[in-house]
C-alpha cells in the first residue's frame, strides 16, 4: 500500500473513530462522568474499593480538618442521600461548603468515601462580590439539578 493510500485510510479512520465513538456505546460511559451519593449508598458490595468519581454538594458546616495533618472530612449530598468523605491532601481553592465537588476515590465497607483527589464543580453564574453582598441571585440551573439524580 502506498503512503498516500495509507494517509487517506488514516484520516478516514480518525474521523470514523470519532464519529463512531459518538454514535456507538463508548460515549455512553462518559455520559456518566460521575456517580451521585444516592447511587453510591445502594451499590453492590463487589464494587467496594473500586476507583470511581462521585459528585455532590459539600454540606454546609460539615468540613472538619484534623489539626497538624492534611486530613479532612466532609459530607457530600445530592439532595436525596448524603455520604461522608475522608480526604487527605490540600483541597482545591474553589472547594467550598455549599458548593459542588467531584471526589475521586473509593467507597468502602466502613461506609466512608476515601478520596485522594477533589475537583471543584462551579456553577454558570458570574458576578462581582459587591453584587453577592447585595444578595443578587442570577438565573441558573442549580447545582443539584446538574447532578441528574435519577
Amino acid at each position: 500500500m502506498s503512503g498516500k493510500k495509507l494517509g487517506i485510510l488514516g484520516s478516514v479512520v480518525i474521523v470514523a473513530l470519532g464519529i463512531g465513538y459518538l454514535a456507538l456505546g463508548n460515549f455512553g460511559e462518559n455520559l456518566v462522568y460521575f456517580m451521585t451519593p444516592s447511587e453510591v449508598v445502594v451499590m453492590e458490595q463487589n464494587r467496594y474499593g473500586k476507583k470511581m468519581r462521585v459528585a455532590g454538594m459539600v454540606v454546609k458546616a460539615s468540613m472538619e480538618v484534623i489539626p497538624n495533618t492534611l486530613k479532612l472530612r466532609f459530607d457530600l449530598t445530592d439532595g436525596a442521600e448524603t455520604i461522608p468523605v475522608a480526604f487527605e491532601g490540600i483541597p482545591p481553592d474553589l472547594f467550598k461548603e455549599g458548593k459542588g465537588a467531584v471526589v475521586e476515590g473509593y467507597w468502602d465497607a466502613d461506609h466512608v468515601f476515601h478520596s485522594h483527589m477533589i475537583m471543584a464543580k462551579h456553577e454558570e453564574d458570574y458576578m462581582p462580590i459587591e453584587m453577592k453582598k447585595a444578595g443578587v441571585e442570577l438565573p441558573k440551573m442549580g447545582l443539584l439539578k446538574t447532578l441528574k439524580v435519577n
Binding site: L31, V32, Y33, F34, A55, V102, M119, K121, H122, E123, E124, D125, Y126, M127, P128, M131, V136, L138, P139, K140, M141, T146, L147, K148
Partner: peptide, 22 residues
C-alpha cells in the same frame, strides 16, 4: 443533557447568568 463537570450554559432559556460588568 448529561452529568458534566463543566458548568451549564450561562446564556440559555433560563436567562443570562453573568453580571452586567462581566
Amino acid at each position: 443533557w448529561w452529568r458534566s463537570l463543566h458548568q451549564p450554559l450561562s446564556v440559555s432559556t433560563r436567562g443570562v447568568s453573568i453580571a452586567p460588568n462581566m
